[in-house]
Amino acid sequence: MSQSQKRDAPKARPVSQMSWAWLGVMPFFIFAFMFLLYPSSTIVVRTFQDAETGSFTLKNIINLMRDPYVLGAYSLSIKISIVTALGGAIFGFLLAYAAIRGGLPRFMRSSLMTFSGVASNFAGVPLAFAFIALLSPTGMLTNWLKAVGFNIYDYGFTLFKFWGLSLVYMYFQFPLMVLIITPAIDGLRREWVEASENLGATTFQYWRYVAFPILLPSLLGCTILLFGNAFGAFATAQALTGGSAMNLATIVIGAQLRGDVLGDLGLGYAVAFGMVIVMTVVMIGYSVLQRRAERWLK
């Protein structure tokens, strides 16, 4: 072949029509369809469907808006979600920051992460039982405190009401906060503290102008996620209160679908539909804030 002759370009590898990798992710898609998309779309459809005739109706939504029992359930769910989200976020953040940046021994971080991984998933009946054994009127800790002359029930505390349930929720809320805020705390670079000090800033000014604004999207995003976590919780409240003492949205849905109260299936779907909307807003909010945080922390 002469110098002037061009060599044949190497043939491009044929593009595979179908990657085998799709096979690996199929179980996820099947699972998501069966247990997320299908039930969600069923909720949406049945919310606008007459339970008897199957025709389109807004009756369920109207009933929901007019029913003080349901509105009270939403209100209570939102209140407990806000309280435990804020409590979990503040406590969880301080705990994570202390373990990661507080100059504590390294094992503190790994111990906290292991505990948080377990505790954030410890909910439902076992958690309710643990707290009943500990803080019910005849619970172990209650009795110990009684023995030293301090009966918490004399001071208005009840495990089975708002603050009691909030305390129980906090058990899985703050570990979840620890887990999800850790990457943001890790992302705070030592040079930012030094650069701000070098420019004359005090520690307070560093936090006010640099660290807090950088962490804010992550903090808000994580708080929103905690809100969603509490808002969707059912088994813990049901097991702790028996479904009667605390009228949460999730308990109302269960009651309506089981037919325990009025047995209004359509209303149950409408309440669930409301929850789907709240959770969707939560997820979008989290995702937007997380993206903003990542942009700054990358």
Partner: peptide, 21 residues
């Protein structure tokens, strides 16, 4: 003297610009 009372300017290897500003 603490770093914020020295009036020296420093440039870091990894820039250390504040990402929120």
């Amino acid at each position: 003297n603490p770093p914020n009372q020295r009036n020296v300017g420093m440039i870091f290897q990894a820039y250390a610009l504040f990402p929120n500003m």
